[in-house]
Structures are given as C-alpha cells and as structure tokens.
Amino acid sequence: MTEKVISREKIQDLLKKLGESYNVFAPVQDEGKVLFMSLENSSRDVVLEFKNALKPPKEVFFPQTDILFTFMKTTDGVRSEDAQRKKSKPNLIFAIRPCDVQALQLFDKVFSGDYQDSLYLERREDSIIISMVCSEPQETCFCTSVGGSPVTAEADIILTDLGDQIFASGLTESGEKILEDRNFKTATREFMDKKKEAHSRAEGSMKEVFNMNKISEIIGKSFEKPFWNDISRRCINCYTCTFLCPTCHCFDITDVKRKGGGERIKTWDSCMSPLFTLHASGHNPRGEEYSRWRQRLFHKFKYLPDNLGLLGCVGCGRCLDTCPTGMDIREILNIVISEDKTKE
C-alpha cells in the first residue's frame, strides 16, 4: 500500500489533471447544500469540509432518468434508435464517503446478477473511487451498526483530512498510479501517526444503535405483527427516503411522448408509492401505507441479505435526516427487535 500526502491547496490542481482522463464527480456547494457534480464544464470549487453530500453519488452510475431508446414516426412506419451514449472518459468519484462506497458494492451485485445491466456496467467500467474518511461522523450516522466503518472503504484510494495536508492511501493498482502524480509527497511518520489518531477518533465517536445479530430472521418473523400500522403512522409516503438512499435501486420503465415521437425511459421508482405495486386489474397488494414501510424494511434487512448476502442499509442516516415527518429507521428497527424479544 502506497501512503502519500497532498497539501490541501493542491487538490484543485490534482482534480484538473484527473479531469483530462476522467469525468470527475466531486462535492461542490450549491446554495448552501453539498452535492456531487461533474466538474466537466464547471467552474465550481470543490469542498472538502462537508459531513456528507445531501444526495448520494449513486446517480453517477444510476441516473434518475435514463433514456433507453427513442422512437419516431416516419413516412413508412415507426423507427427506433438506441439512445446516444458516447463512451467518453471513465467516471471518477472524488471524496465519496465510505458508507456510499459500501452501497456501490451492493449496486455491483444487483446490476450484474442474473441480468447484466449494460447501462450501469458501462458507466461503472474502469471507474475510479476515491473515498474520504469521515473524521467527524454526524449524529445521524450509524455505519458501524450495519457492518461499515467511517475509516475504511473498498476504494482505489482513501483520503484522510489532516488539516493542511490530506493523507492518501492507495488500495488498488489504479489508485497507486494516481498517487504517482507529483502533487503527492511521501508520507512521513508524523503524518502516519496523525492519520492513525484521526481514524481512532472517528471510530471512537460511533455508537452501536442496534444489534444486527440475526436481523434477517427477526425481521422475517415480524411480518404479521400488529405494530406496523402504529409505527409507520406518521409517514406520508413521499419518496425522499428511497430517492436519497445510497442503496435503493428500484426503477420503472415507461414511455414518454416527445415532439414527433417518444422515448422509453428508465427512472428511479419508490416502494413508498402505491403505484409501485398497482396491478393493471386495479388490485394493489401493498395498498395500505404501513405495508409499504414494512416492505422497505424487509427489503433492506431480510430480502437483500438472504439473496445477495449484503444488507440494504449502509448507515448514512440520510433517510432519517431528511424525513419531513421524522421517521427514524433506527427507532423502528429497535422496536421490531425488542418486540421480538418480548413475544418469546
């Protein structure tokens, strides 16, 4: 593992150079919010002082709206054309938090399972992930409770903010190659110690908010329990939690009319919507609001672990932080877990 440091003011220069070979996505300020945006044709400054981006960078590989093909009326019928997808430079995500990296591992499994999703895989191919350690996790963070860590990630490079200097560890071949750039200097003992200190401080600030032991089994037994209606009562069934979730990956395919023809599009979908399961007959197996909340929990903590061996939650806390009615997945899981204990 190569260990280097780069001074804070050299980051812009580094990103500019990386921009020659990659389409770089990095956290930028947008009217007080931090969002990941492409630096291509953008003059925005990258921010490193952020807790986490409001929206996970999942859309780099899985955009909210993706055009599959277009169709148009011609004199001799209908002609369809694959959407123009010019394979430009590979994608690079800079300063993505470890929880969001963990979510990408789930995406990789989902989109390259029985069906190889070429749209996802093309964008993911040769992509570079540069992660940034969470020196100061938020009150809403709970990555360590779902098997994650604020300081490690399956990335190409992992950065640690040490103030004037940023510590960089190369974890893969492509990561190490990037560290050959002359903006990086060899890390001295002093910086290594500082990094270690920062890591243990970050890890020490995390609390276990629930016990994941046998969670899939516990959740599985709760399907018919009477509490679902009560605990999801205040939920208004908007899609905020699902759309801002780094692991939520459900989508819908619809046609949209455009001038002279139309497009077949793939768009994010949400299990919070009654439309998600509405049958053509008019019947809806998940017509009740509580059943949709239950589904969200089951998918994340039972179906995904059972089917793919990975939890559908990485503990980023976005859902509870942005919920307009204060639904808190930690609270709900704890109710399910404690109800399981009391009933036996």
């Binding site: 969002l35 208004i236 908007c238 949400s270 919507s273 439309l275």
Partner: peptide
C-alpha cells in the same frame, strides 16, 4: 433542475388530498 420528484411537497400538503392525482 435539482428537483428529485420525491413528491414530499405534495404528500405533506394538507390540501393535496386527492385520491387520484393527475401527477400519478
């Protein structure tokens, strides 16, 4: 451009109570 169409504005609104909504 930033709107993610999460419908939170609609769902939280006391006056958006239609059982069938044109947006759906």
């Amino acid at each position: 451009e930033k709107c993610i169409r999460c419908t939170a504005c609609r769902e939280i609104c006391p006056f958006c109570y239609c059982e069938r909504c044109i947006l759906d």
